[in-house]
Design a protein around this nucleic acid. Structure first.
Lengths: 161, 161
DNA sequence: TATTGTTATACTCTATAACTATA
DNA sequence: TATAGTTATAGAGTATAACAATA
């Protein structure tokens, strides 16, 4: 048995000996490193392989918009309608949501969370709140609010372009 | 021919009619939307399918660290050694880099950019600079610097945890 | 004609284990 | 025994085209 526990999960982050040149000044590069680390932290905190960030987002959006259509959920989280299908199917199979039918539009579905889905979402809110508080410690006083505002401005600006 | 140019490329961004609940206050959610938009903007600006953000990062790191080893490149951009292999092979095939051998370590390779690689990198620097300037407009005065500092603090903090 | 949910497909990305050759 | 580069593979994510039902 050679084991060889190599090929680490891409822990990311410039090594001290390596000169990353202009990359630390490139917004896209820094966004990628940050997202990688935050996603990994989310997975460790949630401790459930089947609940990844998109699943959390989907549950939140359905909870806040009872009867919402899959199309609008997809647009809200930046996933195509086609790729949302297996995600919804998995959440339905887990018993977290049900698909009703839209009275006004025979083509559309009306999504609702089950009590189990709401309970899962409540748990996720607690886990995420603790994680975000820990991240906020790294950002200094007011850092979290500033970061969220800047990302919001970036999103609304870039979306129009 | 039905065409049906649907399934938009996941343009992302909460629709005005949809309530995204607590998501706009979740750092990971906002990071994902931002990264999605910035990556798409990068692709449009570069206008070359074969040059994606990781390719740009790899060229930059080799240029700033002549003779660097693939292992260190992989760690710097948050990609596993195994997954770096096809990326390097593609860049080598495009004539942008060469793989020499490390004098001090027979196992390692020493990566160097070719003149064509340096030229491509110079072009990419110009494209990225224009893109970043446009993004900076959305962020307000000092916004870019603040965003980069916050992302840096987030990365260094989360990397230790 | 256009849209909603869906299927199918392809390609990228990511993760993991294991091999070889060097150390 | 440990590391560097590689191979292979499986899974997730993403992009695109097309279809049936409905509007």
């Amino acid at each position: 048995m050679t084991e060889d526990r190599q090929s680490k999960p891409a822990a990311a982050g410039p090594l001290p000996e390596i000169n990353t040149g202009a990359l630390p000044k490139v917004i896209g590069y820094m966004l990628r490193l940050s997202q990688l680390l935050v996603y990994q932290a989310f997975q460790r905190a949630v401790n459930d392989e089947t609940i990844r960030p998109p699943q959390f987002s989907i549950l939140e959006i359905i909870s806040c918009n009872p009867g919402v259509r899959p199309s609008d959920v997809a647009a809200s989280i930046g996933v195509s309608r086609a790729n949302l299908v297996p995600l919804l199917a998995e959440l339905e199979k887990s018993g977290f949501l049900v698909r009703g039918s839209d009275r006004k539009d025979g083509r559309a579905q009306a999504l609702h969370l089950t009590p189990a889905g709401e309970a899962q979402l409540t748990r996720l809110h607690e886990v995420v709140a603790r994680l975000e508080d820990r991240l906020a410690e790294y950002l200094g006083p007011g850092g979290r609010e500033t970061l969220l505002r800047l990302l919001h401005d970036l999103n609304t600006g870039a979306a129009k372009a």
